[in-house]
Design a protein around this nucleic acid. Structure first.
Lengths: 180, 180
DNA sequence: CGCAACATGTAAGCGGTTACATGATTAC
DNA sequence: GTAATCATGTAACCGCTTACATGTTGCG
């Protein structure tokens, strides 16, 4: 499941340009599968070259031609095949948690700042989730609702955990004076 | 916060070899910051070249010399400086969630298998956490306890969410018959 | 007047993964 | 006998990130 496959999946919902897909990555997919233009455009080119998508070029004035991609029958087969992997991974790479392991070496003010910044990030996610929900989810496939709920639940849990346990990190210990 | 910096942090707890650090990555750090030998050994070499660690080679018979690394004063300064970044990231890359977005295109049996495999993974994490706790945490820095609790809480929440909401994905919908 | 949105792409680089190479000792 | 543990490393590769390049339209 790389960016290519996810793009292919998104195209099962209808034709779209790279620009359109980027917006979808930013909103609904961003919190668990990020991708920038530098990944998306080459991915779409590769998919087109493999015959997994068709590309319709729509001329525009002043802007580059809008390239609208549509999934092909071969693309659908390829995707269905990719979706038969029953052990997809779920990876976390957290500089935040790594840093917190060494909180006893940090200045207390910096620890507080890190925690506050993380809470602010989580808050932004929650706003994003609310925005998506207010846009109407009736026509969404059940998987999307599952994934959105997953994100909301984890975000709420992280927020609560940080608030309930930050005292562990911010109570002064002797070690901190040795740090320098 | 790359592998190099995390290795440096681990060495504040005492001397260690690359092999030792790998074990620590597998146990306590693995769930939020994975690293293999292919990252760790080059990282230690680079740290030694920069003078951030000292390397003591202990000859052994039959095995390669054991190289034990110790953090230097410069290393400590470098680490303290790195720990002043107050916006460390927390990234998730989940093929699992990406796949679940397209559950309506999958065979129901495959969806079930994916969910069961994820639950099994979570179970393994929980076992790991219990094992760490039973090994005694009294002498652990507070940050480690915070991070361990974080992992346990998120794992429990994920497990509960999947169990409570998998019905969303496994109830048959019309779309599934169109998938081919 | 300046910024955001629209719209597509390339190229260099970076960091991490995977596979390979070697080989003794110990426990089952 | 065979698998796991101890022990270190290299090299190729892969996929994503970042920075760069270009240019119009419309809003405040």
């Amino acid at each position: 499941m790389d960016v290519k496959t996810v793009c292919l999946g998104m195209l099962t919902d209808g034709k779209a340009s790279g620009y359109d897909l980027k917006k979808q990555f930013e909103s609904s997919f961003g919190h668990f599968f990020a991708a920038g233009y530098g990944s998306i455009y080459p991915a779409l080119s590769a998919l087109a070259e493999q015959g997994l998508v068709d590309c319709e070029e729509i001329p525009q004035e002043g802007k580059p031609d809008r390239k609208v991609y549509a999934i092909t029958t071969e693309g659908r087969h390829f995707l269905l095949n990719a979706l038969q992997n029953t052990s997809p991974c779920h990876k976390v790479r957290s500089e935040f948690l790594a840093m917190m392991c060494f909180a006893h070496l940090m200045r207390p003010a910096d620890v507080e700042a890190v925690l506050d910044n993380r809470l602010a990030d989580i808050e932004r996610f929650k706003e994003m989730f609310d925005e998506i929900e207010s846009g109407g989810m009736q026509d969404w496939p059940p998987g999307m609702r599952f994934v959105l709920g997953f994100g909301k639940t984890i975000a709420a849990t992280m927020e609560r955990y940080i608030n309930d346990n930050r005292y562990l990190l911010t109570e002064q210990t002797e070690e901190q004076s040795v740090a320098g």
